[in-house]
Computed example of a mutant assay.
Amino acid sequence: MTRQEFEEALLPLTKQELLHQKNPAYFQEQYGRYHDPGYPALYARAEYIRNHVFLSESNIMDSLPGHLHFRSSNIRLNRQDRFSDVPIHHHGYIELNYVFSGNCTAIVNKRKIPMTAGDICIMDRLAEHTILPTGIDDIVLNIMLATDYFSNTFIGSLLSGGAVARFLAGVIDQANEHNQYLLFHTEHDPLVKEIIENIFIEYLNPGICCEDVLRYYLNLLFIELARCYQGDMERRHHQKNKRYITEILNYMEQNFSSCSLEGVAKKFNYHPNYLSRLIKSETGLTFQENISENRMNRAVFLLKNSDMPIYKIVSECGYQNQNFFYRKFTKKFGQTPKEYRDSQSAQ
């Protein structure tokens, strides 16, 4: 099976999906008893889930029987039924939801999570969750892994994987609460999509050593997700710094005559060394070079637009030594301050 054939195979509606599409109130057979009005416990109907996003002990489905999900392997794959109402539930295994195309809304631990193509949500076995009914163009792929898939050796290979390694380590820790989840945005990482397609193609068309191949691909997937997570954190940090750097530079421009690196760092809660590197990386100039530029720009403005004596301009721009100012100005503009003012007046 090629990738194109796999992608085409995801599109046709199944009989189950046609039934859901024609009758939105229909529930899959395995969920039926949870929606029988005569059933003693009050389990959440999909309408209630959509309107209230509420969880209580009485409306969370128990784990589904293991044989529905794992037959001869500790790995099970499927495609989420479109148009399907599924009650909030939890499992005895790890679940990974991948939005192959379109979008969907997941509910995990009472939190509504909009997901778009490329997003991945990994849930530990007691995370209470559902995916609200999807449309015809919304393809969600599910990878379910028995807890014995994970081993200390595998977790050890991800020691540098940050949050991903910590999450997976929690999976095999019996003392853990097992209700955690991680969300990844991988739309800009084509390798993730390629790996997941390879996993499904191998699963649907098993060859020799199929389970070894699947394990290889899954290990590669988790390593790539660790990289994605780290990259996402770095991008968020960079965007946060981008917002702050504008505010910092504006502050420096308004207070160039008196501000210092230590003073600005304290005001914006940065370490001076980190702030110095941040300003250099964002502007190409050091802190002091930025201050010098601001001072010179102010001096030029005053020379062109006022009759203020030059010695007062020197003080106004934060310089303590007039000779030092003259040297800096002449080096930058090729003229003394007086020559510059005279040349501007002659124009």
Rank of each mutant, 00 (worst) to 15 (best):
S151G: 04
R227G: 07
H185C: 05
N179D: 15
N142S: 10
D148F: 08
A175T: 15
R227I: 14
D232Y: 11
L182G: 02
N198H: 07
A226R: 13
E202M: 05
T186W: 05
Y216E: 11
S157L: 08
D138W: 15
S151A: 03
E197R: 00
D189Q: 03
Y181G: 04
R166P: 11
D137R: 10
L204I: 04
H185L: 08
D138L: 05
G156F: 06
T147M: 02
I199M: 02
L214V: 04
D137A: 14
E187C: 12
L218I: 06
V140H: 07
S157R: 06
K193Q: 06
Q230G: 08
I195E: 01
C228W: 01
L182P: 03
D173L: 12
T153V: 14
I196C: 01
D173H: 15
L132E: 02
L132Q: 03
D137Y: 15
Y149Q: 11
N205Y: 10
H185N: 09
T153C: 08
C228L: 11
H188R: 13
D138I: 07
Y203A: 01
D148L: 04
R227T: 12
Y229G: 05
S151N: 04
K193H: 02
R215L: 07
L168Q: 04
E194I: 00
F154D: 00
Y149S: 06
E187F: 12
N219L: 05
V171K: 02
H238W: 05
Q180R: 13
H178E: 10
M233F: 03
D173I: 09
L182M: 10
P190E: 01
P133S: 09
L191E: 01
V140M: 08
H178P: 12
L218W: 00
N176V: 10
G231Q: 15
K193R: 09
V192W: 00
Q230L: 11
E202W: 03
N176H: 14
N179W: 14
C228T: 14
I136E: 15
H178Q: 15
D137N: 15
G161D: 07
E224P: 08
L183S: 02
P190W: 00
I201Y: 07
L141Y: 01
A226H: 12
Y229I: 10
G162L: 05
C210D: 09
R235N: 07
Q239H: 15
I223P: 01
E202V: 05
Q180I: 12
I208A: 08
C210G: 13
F154S: 01
L204P: 03
E197S: 12
V213Y: 13
H185W: 07
P206G: 11
H185T: 10
A175R: 09
L132C: 00
M144Q: 10
L225P: 02
I208R: 11
D189S: 08
V164L: 08
F150M: 04
N198S: 15
I131L: 15
Y203K: 02
P190D: 00
Y181Q: 04
K193G: 01
A226N: 10
Q230E: 07
A226I: 14
T153Y: 13
L191H: 01
N205V: 09
A146N: 03
A163H: 08
F167I: 10
R166Y: 14
A146H: 04
I143M: 00
